[in-house]
């Protein structure tokens, strides 16, 4: 008999609050959706962090393209005309062309301990690329090549550093921020 009374009380509670509960069921997911969809202007690509010591395949297919390894090598300050207090380096990313990679852009170097971020210097350095070196991914290449980016690092940088490059795959529309950890 106790169970019957409690059961009846419970049903009454549900019925009395039916309107409010219905509103909650609609509004809570709607609020979560709106909060997520607003985005506040931030757009993030998919991210993947890999070691810079070995190539990374852009997919499981046998004809998949591969990026890496990544090296950071110093440049002669006087040769390139870099100012005192800077550490000019050349970031080199080996690219093996194939599927999953249509183009790439935006080489940046990040110092994880401080969050500081450098990017390629387009002007101000006397530097010319050599044979086999490209400034960004070539869509119709057949043989492996290097994507190179001269960067003016600060001279108080502490490694290991992260080299990030954004890759695009036109057929699938996939955009990926590929982050390579590199011992300096």
């Amino acid at each position: 008999m106790d169970h019957a009374v409690t059961g009846a009380r419970l049903t009454r509670w549900w019925r009395r609050n039916a309107l409010a509960l219905g509103a909650l069921v609609v509004l809570v997911p709607a609020s979560l959706f709106a909060y997520d969809a607003l985005g506040f202007g931030a757009v993030r690509n998919a991210e993947l962090t890999v070691s810079g010591d070995e190539p990374h395949a852009m997919g499981g297919m046998p004809a998949a393209a591969a990026l890496g390894p990544v090296t950071i090598s110093p440049l002669e300050r006087d040769e390139v005309g870099a100012p005192r207090g800077s550490d000019p380096v050349l970031v080199t990313i080996r690219v093996d062309p194939g599927e999953g990679l249509s183009s790439c852009r935006g080489v940046t170097v990040t110092e994880p301990s401080t969050g500081r971020q450098w990017r390629t210097v387009f002007t101000g350095l006397t530097w010319v690329q050599e044979q086999g070196q490209e400034m960004s991914c070539v869509s119709d290449a057949v043989i492996p090549y290097d994507v190179v980016a001269p960067v003016l690092l600060s001279d108080d940088v502490v490694g290991p550093l992260v080299v990030t490059i954004t890759t695009f795959d036109q057929p699938t529309g996939a955009v990926l921020d590929l982050r390579f950890t590199v011992e300096q």
Binding site: P83, R84, G85, S86, W118, V121, T123, L152, S154, D155
Partner: peptide, 15 residues
């Protein structure tokens, strides 16, 4: 000449 002004010029972390 693009070096005539610092306006719209990329700035450096190093120097």
């Amino acid at each position: 000449d693009s070096s005539a002004s610092l306006f719209s010029t990329g700035l450096s972390l190093a120097v």
